[in-house]
């Protein structure tokens, strides 16, 4: 599937926090309809990479382009409107809004903008897709953890993004929920969406990703299919330390 046209291209991206280099000259491409996993041990710079793409952080050097036009340097809201939508590592919801209004936030202001009944209908479709349309009028405080995650996903989908960023979307789910969660992302994949996911759950990476970028201490150390990178000695060393390699 890696033959589609390039949607997102990351070139020489670097982020320094004072003296610490959290992301160091990273390059990779994401093609249309591709699911790319960013993996690596804790503190390797994965979430920083996500924050750089979504505009939550500004890069120190390098360039990120979406469908050929530069998005690095733009504000988070402009990047979102160009078609990059993300979930957060710690779920962020809008507590005083109802479930359906949370999703409408994405539909009304995101990449493809809708308003009124059209936005509401579309928000219902998205809730249906993630399987919680029956809760549309509930207050968000009544949702279980996985439903909160589903809600956040629906909010992202509602803006019809060109590319979807999922930041540890499966983290913290119990085994049953995990199966549901993986199935849900599989549906997104079969719909031909372009997705970047940061993930620790190896099963999910194997079954979902077309391509993996492995990071360690801010640098990209490997790239390729999940089977290939997960058997790469350098990747194993990064995860488990020198003794086990």
């Amino acid at each position: 599937m890696a033959s589609g046209k390039t949607v997102l291209s990351v070139r020489g991206v670097t982020k320094q926090f004072g003296g610490l280099t959290a992301v160091d000259h990273v390059d990779f491409d994401v093609h249309e309809h591709e699911v790319v996993g960013i993996i690596g041990p804790n503190g390797s710079g994965k979430t920083t990479m996500m924050n750089l793409i979504s505009g939550a952080l500004k890069l120190t050097a390098g360039q990120i382009t979406l469908q050929g036009s530069r998005i690095s340097g733009l504000s988070a809201q402009d990047i979102n409107r160009r078609g990059v939508s993300r979930t957060f590592q710690l779920v962020k919801m809008l507590p005083t809004l109802t479930v359906i209004e949370n999703v409408m936030a994405g539909a009304v202001f995101g990449h493809k903008r809708r308003w009124g009944y059209e936005a509401e209908d579309f928000a219902h479709q998205m809730l249906n897709k993630v399987g919680i349309d029956s809760l549309a009028n509930a207050p968000v405080s009544s949702l279980t953890y996985i439903d909160q995650k589903r809600l956040e996903l629906a909010r992202c989908l509602a803006s019809e993004p060109e590319i979807l960023l999922l930041d540890e979307w499966l983290a913290g789910l119990n085994p049953t929920e995990l199966t549901t969660g993986i199935e849900l992302i599989k549906t997104l994949r079969s719909e031909g969406r372009t997705v970047i996911l940061v993930e620790h759950v190896m099963d999910a990476i194997r079954s979902l990703c077309d391509n993996c970028v492995v990071m360690n201490t801010g640098q990209k150390i490997a790239q390729g299919s999940p089977a290939k990178v997960l058997s790469d000695p350098e990747v194993i060393r990064a995860y488990l330390g020198d003794d086990d390699a």
Binding site: S54, G55, A56, S75, A76, Q77, N80, R81, S85, R86, F88, K92, M93, L94, P95, T96, L97, E101, M104, A105, G106, V108, F109, G110, H111, R113, W115, R155, S159
Partner: peptide, 24 residues
């Protein structure tokens, strides 16, 4: 209006608002 809806979202969480494409 959309402005009112945007303000409710901003009042809840400004980060989410920005990541929803709202010019806060």
């Amino acid at each position: 209006s959309r402005l009112g809806f945007a303000m409710r979202i901003i009042g809840n969480d400004e980060t989410v608002a920005a990541h929803c494409g709202i010019n806060t």
